[in-house]
Design a protein around this nucleic acid. Sequence first.
DNA 1: ATAATAGTGTCTTTCAGACATTATGAT
DNA 2: ATCATAATGTCTGAAAGACACTATTAT
Lengths: 233, 233
Amino acid sequence: MSDSINPVDIVLFSVDPVIMTLIDDNLHVLAVKRTSEPFKGLWGLPGGRVDKACKNLDEALALKLKQKTGLDSIYFEQLQTYGSNEMDPRGWSVTTAYLSLVHKDSIDFIALPESHSRPEWIPLKSVVNGKIEMAFWHKQIISDAFERLKSKSLYTDLPANLMAPLFTIATLRSAYEAILGCELTRQSFAKRMESANIFIKTDKVELGSHRAPPLYRKRSRGGNYYFPRQLMD
Amino acid sequence: MSDSINPVDIVLFSVDPVIMTLIDDNLHVLAVKRTSEPFKGLWGLPGGRVDKACKNLDEALALKLKQKTGLDSIYFEQLQTYGSNEMDPRGWSVTTAYLSLVHKDSIDFIALPESHSRPEWIPLKSVVNGKIEMAFWHKQIISDAFERLKSKSLYTDLPANLMAPLFTIATLRSAYEAILGCELTRQSFAKRMESANIFIKTDKVELGSHRAPPLYRKRSRGGNYYFPRQLMD
DNA sequence: ATAATAGTGTCTTTCAGACATTATGAT
DNA sequence: ATCATAATGTCTGAAAGACACTATTAT
């Protein structure tokens, strides 16, 4: 065999970040209206081809996040790679899906370049139940991303990435409840977070509520924390 | 934008299964000596290009496993996708790594087609410590696969996929110990497995040892079981 | 003062881990 | 009979879940 490239060895390849945030205790996904074929006019994930100037996949994804959200150093993890001859009418294609979690206020939509149509937050629910039609396999990808978020939220601090830089334990609990779709006892939740020692209590408090709760911030930026036990469902 | 294919949109793509088994309480990886460039003569994972007759990635991987091991319906899960301009001298390439776990006796090497060089079990240790040099990024991929296996073994029944159809709890415990690199208390381990109710005790026993232990088989073939707590390390 | 939310402490349950005791099969 | 391993039961400790009670802030 020679080391030249055989056309049967190549495929269409893209990366697709599922960028999620919480708005009014409901998960939303960042999407853009497609301005080109295929699936022109439908909503799609803000992904696309990798910039081959990047030296690896994660760097390519980080660049895409920067372009679509204006943010760098936001949380993301690789989810799953989909390959099929049915995803894209142009042929056998492969896409690697990522999950990225952000706080909604961290994105400054006004500052984004106008080059294409602006991204928008659309409710996760309306994607999963099919009310909003998505391009390619993006409905499947978003559903899988949500399932991953849900199951990892049972034993990791993943939802903490949805928080603003300073947040209360109650806000974090709301995030868990929104993701898991069930209520969590206030005291047990606080004990769990307290004993994990992954957040730092600041001397600031959140004003405006009844008894002002302390604000916390995340300790390190190195990977997820795994709780020794699952939250029981 | 037209819907024709632009050459910058395509990449070299392959799937690479990390097939692991236990031989004498040591993890081994299935590898083949490469007979073509690049990296001719080095060991590599038994992967390669996807057969575009397959309708999706998992099916393509299942076909590859069938070709390389003669087995279908063995356990596999997708691990991670690597993309870089440094993996393959021919250009920007992408590969999706899978983890597959088998019992060593389930592969009949004699029955495999002779088309290329036969696959062989090589000790995981000699890959990780660099004593055996691997093609592409296969050392990295194998190391990552081992890390995933180790961390998932703390809270899932993943190692059960390394067992023969009938196995004892002691054998399963040896597998966990080999993966985790530490001893586990016999009684706690048995209780954990017993209460999970994921294995069925048969009326057969394993002869040859002192007190004959009962043989178990796996209950269902649907996904992994997640234990409510982690094994403490 | 009242309402609402936060923090603390107690009790129960579950399960890991350690250890002792009993049971059983190979020799 | 002896030995090695399996099975069973008891105790301790960690952490979840439930719940009562106290503390603090806005109104």
